[in-house]
Amino acid sequence: MKQSPEKKETAEQAEASLSTNYVVRAIGVKKVYTMGAEKVHALRGVDFAVRRGEYISIMGPSGSGKSTLFNMIGGLDKPNEGQVYIDEVDIAALNPVELAWLRCHKVGYIFQTYNLITVATALDNVMLPMTFAGMQQADAQDKAIKILERVGLGERVLHKPLQMSGGQQQRVAIARALANSPSIILADEPTANLDKKTGLQIINLLKELNMTEGVSIITATHDHKMLDISDRIAWVRDGQIEKFQKRSELEIKEGEMHVQ
Protein backbone atom coordinates (compact mmCIF):
# COMPACT_ATOMS: atom_id res chain seq x y z
CA MET A 1 0.00 0.00 0.00
CA LYS A 2 2.64 2.44 1.04
CA GLN A 3 4.92 1.57 -1.83
CA SER A 4 2.58 2.16 -4.72
CA PRO A 5 2.12 5.95 -4.68
CA GLU A 6 5.82 6.40 -4.14
CA LYS A 7 6.70 4.27 -7.12
CA LYS A 8 4.15 5.96 -9.26
CA GLU A 9 5.63 9.29 -8.27
CA THR A 10 9.19 8.39 -9.23
CA ALA A 11 8.07 7.04 -12.57
CA GLU A 12 6.16 10.22 -13.14
CA GLN A 13 9.15 12.27 -12.11
CA ALA A 14 11.41 10.52 -14.56
CA GLU A 15 8.95 11.14 -17.30
CA ALA A 16 8.40 14.72 -16.31
CA SER A 17 12.07 15.58 -16.05
CA LEU A 18 12.29 15.37 -19.82
CA SER A 19 9.81 18.14 -20.35
CA THR A 20 9.08 20.01 -17.14
CA ASN A 21 11.57 22.23 -15.55
CA TYR A 22 12.23 22.03 -11.88
CA VAL A 23 12.81 24.98 -9.61
CA VAL A 24 14.26 22.81 -6.89
CA ARG A 25 15.93 19.44 -7.06
CA ALA A 26 17.55 17.64 -4.15
CA ILE A 27 19.48 14.48 -4.86
CA GLY A 28 20.63 12.10 -2.14
CA VAL A 29 20.81 14.84 0.46
CA LYS A 30 22.32 13.84 3.78
CA LYS A 31 22.87 16.02 6.81
CA VAL A 32 24.51 15.09 10.08
CA TYR A 33 24.62 17.37 13.08
CA THR A 34 27.18 16.78 15.77
CA MET A 35 25.77 17.44 19.21
CA GLY A 36 28.59 16.93 21.64
CA ALA A 37 29.80 13.38 21.09
CA GLU A 38 26.53 12.32 19.53
CA LYS A 39 25.84 12.40 15.82
CA VAL A 40 22.32 13.18 14.75
CA HIS A 41 21.34 12.07 11.27
CA ALA A 42 18.82 14.74 10.38
CA LEU A 43 18.53 13.65 6.75
CA ARG A 44 19.45 10.19 5.48
CA GLY A 45 19.46 10.59 1.74
CA VAL A 46 16.49 12.55 0.46
CA ASP A 47 15.42 12.96 -3.16
CA PHE A 48 13.03 15.77 -3.75
CA ALA A 49 11.92 17.83 -6.71
CA VAL A 50 9.57 20.75 -7.12
CA ARG A 51 8.14 21.73 -10.48
CA ARG A 52 7.84 25.33 -11.56
CA GLY A 53 4.61 26.81 -10.23
CA GLU A 54 3.94 23.93 -7.87
CA TYR A 55 2.52 24.29 -4.36
CA ILE A 56 4.06 21.66 -2.16
CA SER A 57 3.76 21.02 1.56
CA ILE A 58 6.29 19.19 3.65
CA MET A 59 4.61 17.40 6.53
CA GLY A 60 6.13 15.50 9.38
CA PRO A 61 6.44 15.36 13.14
CA SER A 62 8.98 17.63 14.80
CA GLY A 63 12.40 16.07 14.79
CA SER A 64 11.67 14.30 11.51
CA GLY A 65 14.19 16.34 9.57
CA LYS A 66 11.47 18.48 8.04
CA SER A 67 13.06 21.77 8.98
CA THR A 68 16.50 20.60 7.93
CA LEU A 69 15.21 19.60 4.50
CA PHE A 70 13.46 22.90 4.30
CA ASN A 71 16.62 24.84 5.11
CA MET A 72 18.59 22.89 2.50
CA ILE A 73 16.06 23.68 -0.19
CA GLY A 74 16.25 27.34 0.69
CA GLY A 75 20.02 27.51 0.53
CA LEU A 76 20.10 28.42 4.22
CA ASP A 77 22.24 25.43 5.05
CA LYS A 78 24.52 23.15 3.10
CA PRO A 79 24.20 19.35 2.92
CA ASN A 80 27.03 17.04 4.02
CA GLU A 81 26.36 14.82 1.05
CA GLY A 82 24.24 15.06 -2.07
CA GLN A 83 23.29 18.02 -4.21
CA VAL A 84 20.66 20.70 -4.04
CA TYR A 85 19.84 22.57 -7.23
CA ILE A 86 17.88 25.79 -7.16
CA ASP A 87 16.90 26.87 -10.64
CA GLU A 88 19.42 24.31 -11.92
CA VAL A 89 22.29 25.86 -9.95
CA ASP A 90 24.13 23.56 -7.54
CA ILE A 91 24.19 25.53 -4.30
CA ALA A 92 27.19 23.62 -2.94
CA ALA A 93 29.27 25.08 -5.77
CA LEU A 94 28.42 28.67 -4.89
CA ASN A 95 30.62 30.97 -2.86
CA PRO A 96 28.99 33.03 -0.09
CA VAL A 97 28.43 36.04 -2.36
CA GLU A 98 26.76 33.97 -5.05
CA LEU A 99 24.69 32.23 -2.42
CA ALA A 100 23.54 35.63 -1.17
CA TRP A 101 22.61 36.58 -4.73
CA LEU A 102 20.58 33.42 -5.04
CA ARG A 103 18.74 34.07 -1.78
CA CYS A 104 18.12 37.63 -2.82
CA HIS A 105 16.73 37.00 -6.30
CA LYS A 106 15.43 33.44 -6.40
CA VAL A 107 14.01 32.68 -3.00
CA GLY A 108 11.54 34.48 -0.76
CA TYR A 109 11.40 33.40 2.88
CA ILE A 110 8.46 33.44 5.23
CA PHE A 111 8.98 32.44 8.84
CA GLN A 112 6.77 31.21 11.63
CA THR A 113 7.83 34.16 13.76
CA TYR A 114 7.61 36.67 10.87
CA ASN A 115 11.20 37.89 11.50
CA LEU A 116 10.44 41.41 10.43
CA ILE A 117 12.83 44.18 11.37
CA THR A 118 10.64 45.37 14.22
CA VAL A 119 12.03 48.88 14.38
CA ALA A 120 11.45 49.62 10.69
CA THR A 121 8.16 50.35 8.92
CA ALA A 122 6.35 47.84 6.73
CA LEU A 123 7.55 49.78 3.70
CA ASP A 124 11.20 49.67 4.81
CA ASN A 125 10.91 45.96 5.51
CA VAL A 126 9.65 45.27 2.01
CA MET A 127 12.21 47.59 0.45
CA LEU A 128 15.17 45.94 2.15
CA PRO A 129 15.59 42.98 -0.26
CA MET A 130 15.22 45.39 -3.18
CA THR A 131 18.00 47.52 -1.74
CA PHE A 132 20.18 44.40 -1.50
CA ALA A 133 19.35 43.70 -5.14
CA GLY A 134 20.70 47.13 -6.03
CA MET A 135 17.39 48.70 -7.00
CA GLN A 136 17.02 52.49 -7.06
CA GLN A 137 15.32 53.84 -3.94
CA ALA A 138 12.42 55.50 -5.77
CA ASP A 139 11.67 52.42 -7.90
CA ALA A 140 11.92 50.19 -4.84
CA GLN A 141 9.46 52.37 -2.96
CA ASP A 142 6.91 52.28 -5.78
CA LYS A 143 7.21 48.54 -6.13
CA ALA A 144 7.05 47.94 -2.37
CA ILE A 145 3.86 49.99 -2.07
CA LYS A 146 2.30 48.04 -4.93
CA ILE A 147 3.17 44.72 -3.31
CA LEU A 148 1.86 45.86 0.07
CA GLU A 149 -1.40 46.84 -1.63
CA ARG A 150 -1.42 43.44 -3.29
CA VAL A 151 -1.35 41.66 0.08
CA GLY A 152 -4.03 43.96 1.45
CA LEU A 153 -1.93 46.34 3.52
CA GLY A 154 -2.23 49.47 1.39
CA GLU A 155 -3.40 51.42 4.44
CA ARG A 156 -0.60 50.32 6.73
CA VAL A 157 2.48 51.05 4.67
CA LEU A 158 4.05 53.26 7.31
CA HIS A 159 3.10 51.19 10.34
CA LYS A 160 5.73 49.33 12.30
CA PRO A 161 5.38 45.59 12.84
CA LEU A 162 4.58 45.87 16.54
CA GLN A 163 1.62 48.13 15.73
CA MET A 164 0.10 45.34 13.64
CA SER A 165 -1.69 42.08 14.33
CA GLY A 166 0.01 38.75 13.71
CA GLY A 167 -1.85 38.22 10.47
CA GLN A 168 -0.85 41.65 9.22
CA GLN A 169 2.77 41.06 10.18
CA GLN A 170 2.75 37.82 8.25
CA ARG A 171 1.35 39.73 5.27
CA VAL A 172 4.27 42.14 5.48
CA ALA A 173 6.58 39.11 5.53
CA ILE A 174 4.83 37.73 2.44
CA ALA A 175 5.19 41.08 0.70
CA ARG A 176 8.87 41.11 1.63
CA ALA A 177 9.29 37.59 0.27
CA LEU A 178 7.79 38.74 -3.03
CA ALA A 179 10.02 41.81 -3.25
CA ASN A 180 12.45 40.57 -5.89
CA SER A 181 9.92 38.42 -7.78
CA PRO A 182 11.47 35.10 -6.67
CA SER A 183 10.85 31.74 -8.35
CA ILE A 184 10.30 30.05 -5.00
CA ILE A 185 8.66 31.09 -1.77
CA LEU A 186 9.67 29.07 1.26
CA ALA A 187 7.24 29.30 4.11
CA ASP A 188 8.27 27.70 7.40
CA GLU A 189 5.13 27.04 9.46
CA PRO A 190 3.62 30.34 8.32
CA THR A 191 0.37 29.81 10.20
CA ALA A 192 1.64 28.27 13.42
CA ASN A 193 1.43 31.52 15.39
CA LEU A 194 -1.94 32.57 13.99
CA ASP A 195 -5.51 31.76 14.92
CA LYS A 196 -7.58 29.55 12.65
CA LYS A 197 -9.30 32.31 10.72
CA THR A 198 -6.20 34.44 10.16
CA GLY A 199 -4.22 31.33 9.28
CA LEU A 200 -6.74 30.47 6.61
CA GLN A 201 -6.50 33.99 5.17
CA ILE A 202 -2.73 33.66 4.95
CA ILE A 203 -3.03 30.25 3.30
CA ASN A 204 -5.51 31.61 0.77
CA LEU A 205 -3.24 34.54 0.04
CA LEU A 206 -0.33 32.18 -0.60
CA LYS A 207 -2.45 30.06 -2.90
CA GLU A 208 -3.64 33.12 -4.76
CA LEU A 209 -0.07 34.31 -5.29
CA ASN A 210 0.86 30.83 -6.42
CA MET A 211 -1.90 30.90 -9.03
CA THR A 212 -1.50 34.47 -10.26
CA GLU A 213 2.25 35.04 -10.04
CA GLY A 214 3.23 31.49 -10.88
CA VAL A 215 5.66 31.39 -7.98
CA SER A 216 6.40 27.95 -6.57
CA ILE A 217 5.53 27.66 -2.92
CA ILE A 218 7.11 25.21 -0.52
CA THR A 219 5.81 25.14 3.02
CA ALA A 220 6.79 23.16 6.06
CA THR A 221 3.68 22.81 8.12
CA HIS A 222 1.60 20.98 10.71
CA ASP A 223 -1.51 22.75 9.51
CA HIS A 224 -4.06 20.47 7.84
CA LYS A 225 -5.76 23.44 6.18
CA MET A 226 -2.57 23.84 4.20
CA LEU A 227 -2.89 20.35 2.73
CA ASP A 228 -6.19 21.25 1.16
CA ILE A 229 -4.62 23.68 -1.25
CA SER A 230 -1.29 21.95 -1.88
CA ASP A 231 -0.62 20.27 -5.19
CA ARG A 232 1.52 17.67 -3.48
CA ILE A 233 2.47 16.70 0.03
CA ALA A 234 5.79 15.21 1.02
CA TRP A 235 5.65 13.20 4.22
CA VAL A 236 8.92 13.20 6.09
CA ARG A 237 9.82 10.72 8.82
CA ASP A 238 13.15 9.82 10.40
CA GLY A 239 15.17 11.86 7.97
CA GLN A 240 13.61 10.33 4.90
CA ILE A 241 10.70 11.06 2.63
CA GLU A 242 8.15 8.43 3.50
CA LYS A 243 5.85 9.19 0.59
CA PHE A 244 4.58 11.82 -1.79
CA GLN A 245 0.87 12.33 -2.13
CA LYS A 246 -1.16 14.30 -4.58
CA ARG A 247 -4.12 16.27 -3.39
CA SER A 248 -6.52 13.99 -5.23
CA GLU A 249 -5.11 10.97 -3.43
CA LEU A 250 -5.35 12.80 -0.18
CA GLU A 251 -9.05 13.49 -0.30
CA ILE A 252 -9.83 9.81 -0.53
CA LYS A 253 -7.67 9.09 2.47
CA GLU A 254 -8.81 12.02 4.52
CA GLY A 255 -10.16 9.90 7.36
CA GLU A 256 -6.93 7.99 7.60
CA MET A 257 -4.91 11.14 7.47
CA HIS A 258 -6.54 12.67 10.49
CA VAL A 259 -5.89 9.53 12.49
CA GLN A 260 -2.23 9.82 11.62
Binding site: A100, R103, C104, F132, N180
Partner: peptide, 16 residues
Protein backbone atom coordinates in the same frame (compact mmCIF):
# COMPACT_ATOMS: atom_id res chain seq x y z
CA UNK B 1 22.01 37.76 15.46
CA UNK B 2 18.43 37.14 14.48
CA UNK B 3 18.29 40.33 12.47
CA UNK B 4 21.55 39.39 10.77
CA UNK B 5 20.12 35.96 9.90
CA UNK B 6 17.02 37.57 8.47
CA UNK B 7 19.07 40.05 6.45
CA UNK B 8 21.19 37.23 5.07
CA UNK B 9 18.04 35.37 4.06
CA UNK B 10 16.98 38.49 2.18
CA UNK B 11 20.24 38.55 0.26
CA UNK B 12 22.69 40.55 2.36
CA UNK B 13 26.24 39.53 1.57
CA UNK B 14 28.79 38.89 4.31
CA UNK B 15 30.75 42.06 3.62
CA UNK B 16 27.59 44.13 3.96
Amino acid sequence: FREIGTMKCLGAIDSF
